[in-house]
């Protein structure tokens, strides 16, 4: 029984680590500010959730588990709020999000392909 709980906790911790690293890669790799914000969302929601759930399996039914789940709830409520505040203040500062429409996207993709083939 306890071994099963250990394995579950291990799985959740590794998944959480994986998602947080993916978010970190995304925040470096994605091209402009508004798409980087989505990558920040990955680490803030699923990375944090999996890590805390993995720790919850370690804690068992104790006061520590209640504290951990309150921290998780708080993170899940506040991180979208600050994300929205960031987006709104970026828009009102005059930062335009780069959009690629459907017809425009095919053109840029073709141009990209030419570039990559040339290189």
């Amino acid at each position: 029984m306890s071994i099963a709980i250990e394995i579950l906790s291990w799985i959740f911790l590794v998944l959480g680590s994986l998602f947080s690293i993916i978010g970190g890669i995304g925040i470096v790799r994605l091209p402009e500010f508004f798409s980087r914000m989505h990558a920040g969302g990955v680490t803030d929601t699923l990375g944090a959730t999996f890590l805390v759930v993995g720790l919850l399996f370690q804690a068992g039914f104790t006061l520590v588990a209640v504290k951990l789940s309150m921290i998780l709830l708080f993170l899940l409520i506040t991180s979208p709020t600050s994300c929205h505040a960031l987006a709104k203040s970026a828009i009102s500062e005059g930062l335009k999000p780069a959009l690629d429409n459907a017809d425009h996207a095919s053109k840029t993709k073709a141009a990209d392909r030419d570039l990559s083939e040339g290189a």
Binding site: F34, M37, H38, A39, G41, V42, T45, L46, L76, I77, S79, P80, T81, C83, H84, A87, K88, I91, P97
Partner: peptide, 12 residues
């Protein structure tokens, strides 16, 4: 907040 919490969509 729910729209912002799901990655891939951000309410601006």
């Amino acid at each position: 907040n729910s729209i912002t919490a799901t990655p891939g969509t951000i309410s601006v």
